[in-house]
Design a protein around this nucleic acid. Structure first.
Lengths: 260, 260
DNA sequence: CGCAGTTTTGATTCATCTCAATTTGTGTGG
DNA sequence: CCACACAAATTGAGATGAATCAAAACTGCG
């Protein structure tokens, strides 16, 4: 199989590289994003069993779907490299982005409850995916305590994350939403060894807007506004954060008022 | 998924009564809300073990908290009777309602990921709670396949539900949010054997507004407006739904426009 | 090199918030 | 049991943030 990435290094780590993952065969024990997606304290033995479970990573080209609404649920997925969005189509034809996933993050949890996926997962750039057949995963987890726990925590984390988004949408104005969005991305890039201050957006303004409950015009305007305020520098999809703490204290609505 | 069914047989504890639950000792095998919170195919043996795990239900008076932000997570909870809200306090003092839970619904999933609760759970009326010590529950689930699955599905359902709320907040206008809210309550009451057309709100306009991302004035106005349109009848907290399908087709923004 | 998709920016409109006044409901103590 | 105080709800008038409509500039892909 031929490599899509210009730089790919063999070593089991170098976390800072854009493509830390291995090629020919998935190997959790040597995977660059292991620290993000899998529990720490697994024995070599357990890791081997996990490797067997996962098999070779699947490639998904930019624009292709990993799964779609209505697809039968059979596995969870971990982004090994690349970038995804999840979205769903609302009656009137518009579609609503429900999240963005980067390396080490999980996809497919929505499918467990009804045995069918309730959203689409679309690659925003050429990506690689590790596939975790769910029933086998659960069976394995029943024997490996750490894995069991980890699975529960992943699901719970997703719930907490969603509630954070709900709060963002309910209580924050447009500027705050965009600021939070940028800071969130920044922090996630940092956790992966990339610069927290400079990165490329993989999604369009429209996708950001959809995710944040805004129109793309508003997103664009706010980017410009942040740039004028010297908070960030934007050029197309390239973002540089100049004043992170400034972004963090975008005013709420009025300077601040009463308490409950 | 049994949650959608409008008719649910009474079982041992007259389901239509406001306090369908048993008293002295929790007993899943005899609990009125069993069909809602626990898996179907459990053997008598398994049910007994579950009963032991759960122990006696705990009473929570109206206004008291089941748990609070920062409390150490140790158990999941199921509402046996009564009504709860979950909320969290935002920096500026305001608080944001993240959900309402009624009989048979679960609380506490947020705490798994960080071992600490990330929201408050407050009783909106005198309630009873079944307590499921988490580590023991997980241990039991490792042996009982149906329980394991059920746990996963419950968590996944929560994720899907949250994403539905996100969508509601992102794409719907105030009227639609309120309409959806009423229809959702209606459907949940129906699933519990109550009338879907007539019920009491346990929460204030302010709590509804907080949940839906609206001010309480707006909620109140929309109730009045729905009443004038003959869709519902409101009197204080008493709601009667006169035209459910009318509520379902509240206009989106403009009659309907383009497709993606 | 042109064309479609994306982005920027401007002018205007509209839904919802904010502020405010009043009414109604609820619980408490005399 | 009634009166009082406080919380909750209704309703109105005006302010405003973001959407909508519109046009132009830029990007990148075939």
């Amino acid at each position: 199989m031929q490599l899509g990435s210009p730089t790919l290094q063999p070593g089991p780590g170098e976390f800072g590289s854009p493509y830390p993952a291995f090629e020919s065969k998935a190997s959790c024990s040597q995977c660059g994003v292991r620290g993000l997606c899998m529990p720490q304290g697994l024995s070599d033995d357990d890791l081997t069993r996990l490797d067997e479970l996962i098999g070779a990573p699947r490639r998904i080209e930019r624009g292709r779907s990993l799964f779609r609404v209505g697809d039968r649920f059979s596995a969870l997925y971990i982004v090994k490299s690349g970038f995804f969005k999840t979205d769903l189509v609302v009656e009137d034809g518009r579609n609503q982005v429900t999240g963005f996933q980067m390396a080490g993050e999980m996809l497919g949890l929505d499918g467990i409850s009804g045995e069918v996926h309730t959203c689409n997962a679309v690659a925003l750039e050429d990506s690689q995916i590790c596939l975790l057949p769910f029933t086998r995963l659960v069976a394995l987890a029943a024997h490996i305590d750490g894995l069991q726990q980890h699975l529960h925590k992943l699901m719970s984390r997703e719930i907490v994350r969603d509630q954070g988004v709900m709060m963002l949408l309910n209580t924050r104005r447009a500027e705050e939403r965009v600021a939070s969005f940028l800071l969130n991305l920044s922090q996630r890039f940092a956790a992966r060894g990339y610069s927290p201050y400079e990165f490329h957006l993989r999604m369009t303004r429209e996708e950001i807007g959809s995710y944040l409950g805004l129109t793309w015009e508003t997103v664009s305007r706010i980017f410009s506004c942040f740039q004028e305020s010297g908070l960030i520098e934007v050029q197309h999809k390239h973002i540089r954060i100049l004043n992170a703490s400034g972004l963090r204290r975008i005013p709420l609505k009025k300077p601040v008022a009463q308490a409950a």
